[in-house]
Write a protein that binds this DNA or RNA. Structure first.
Length: 153
DNA sequence: GCCAACGTTGGC
DNA sequence: GCCAACGTTGGC
């Protein structure tokens, strides 16, 4: 069981939305590196929900991967901002996973605090200028994140 | 294949 | 609003 970190802007889709819905399709990923991370996800993996473009930005909750290898439907939707004219049903470029809400943490673990605790080699999200919306989290780092939050893994 | 221009993400 | 980082695009 691996850990990941997945970013979303709270005003667009935050942990409260996921909590209300229970599960969600993590669609709209249009970066090959992030897509490839999603492709390596396995059912049962966990992902920290990270609020980006927030004040302050940080980790707010925990999700579980419940379905993998799904085709991202928004790539075919000409009305969507995620429409990709180079994509076809025969050769889709983008896929996604389904996630389930596991926990909303009692507090936000801010990027500032993460920067105090980790360097970019052990937790890439703290790297200045980092833009990747999906990142792997090493097991040791994941355990430390739980500990900092006073949560049980 | 190189590389400059451009676009996007996201912190501050 | 600015800027760092960096992926993508297109001319050559």
């Amino acid at each position: 069981m691996a850990h990941w970190l997945m970013k979303s802007e709270p005003e667009v889709y935050g942990i409260a939305h996921l909590d209300a819905e229970g599960t969600t399709l993590w669609d709209g990923i249009r970066n090959y590196q992030a897509r490839n991370f999603m492709r390596s996800m396995v059912i049962g993996d966990r992902a920290f929900f990270y609020h980006s473009n927030a004040t302050p930005p940080g980790i707010v909750g925990l999700m579980e991967v419940i379905e993998t290898g799904l085709t991202d439907p928004s790539q075919f939707d000409s009305g969507s901002k995620y429409f990709d004219p180079k994509s076809s049903a025969a050769a889709p470029r983008w896929d996604c996973v389904r996630l389930r809400h596991l926990r909303t943490f009692g507090r936000l673990l801010s990027l500032e605090e993460l920067r105090e605790q980790f360097d970019p080699d052990t937790l890439p999200v703290v790297r200045r200028g980092n833009r990747l919306s999906i990142l792997p989290v090493e097991e040791a780092s994941a355990l430390r994140i739980y500990a900092l939050l006073g949560e049980t893994p």
